[in-house]
Write a protein that binds this DNA or RNA. Structure first.
Lengths: 119, 119
DNA sequence: ACAAAATACATAGTAATGCAATGTATTGAT
DNA sequence: ATCAATACATTGCATTACTATGTATTTTGT
């Protein structure tokens, strides 16, 4: 039984990591809607909103992908003290993609609820 | 603008594929709760419930993983005619994992809703 | 009767992505 | 003076969905 629990924990941990693949981009774009954030701040914001902890090694490559895809743009902002911050802004293409993602996400939620309720 | 649309479509397609990574295991376990299915039937069932089409090359390795993890068991059932079917049954560990996954999934949904509504 | 599609299993290789590890640099707290 | 926090970034690994391919049987259309 103990063994089963450990196996389960490992499975669940891996599973949560896999769920992030996909949802993270969606969450980031959602957070950026109507509000600019810089990278480090995004990690804090997502943690606050969703209790999901994004590793820095996850966020920065992700933001570069989103930039490359044209969904966000970025701008450096000098600080009076400390390291300059790179702020990310949702583009029009980003807003459009976010809308499509929201529809898909909601449909998926409805579908999964339907499965559970059919039992 | 056309170019942007095409880029968006590709991005969205990839994104949906990524969302499946993780949700598929959850969906499969949900479908198996209280009902046995064989592989090919599972693909049909998921398609009916969620409009998600699972490739066979996705399902069979996934079922083997779930079996290896002890979340499902399988049994061959001979048919009066045709190829024998491999039925999958949710194990106790599978039920437990499914429960944990459901909690995480619901929390995630609530969190994402919260983000959208805060704008 | 014969061809095509559907049923039913499976594997190999590729592409995509989260994460640990590592690195640089500044600031504030003990 | 050292450690934690802030703030950026890259490299390599592990995981997993999907395409392509393969085998074999049954049903459907012409």
């Amino acid at each position: 039984m103990l063994y089963t629990c450990i196996v389960n924990e490992e499975f669940i941990l891996k599973w949560k990591s896999q769920v992030k693949k996909g949802t993270l981009a969606f969450i980031i774009l959602s957070v950026l809607e109507g509000h600019e954030y810089y990278g480090y701040e995004l990690i804090e914001a997502v943690k606050k909103f969703t209790a999901i902890e994004i590793a820095e090694g996850t966020l920065y490559p992700l933001m570069n992908r989103l930039k490359k895809e044209g969904l966000v743009s970025s701008k450096w902002v000098e600080q009076e003290s400390g390291i300059p911050r790179k702020y990310y802004v949702l583009s029009n293409a980003g807003k459009k993609s976010l809308h499509e993602m929201t529809v898909y996400w909601n449909d998926l939620g409805v579908a999964i609820n339907k499965i559970s309720k059919s039992k």
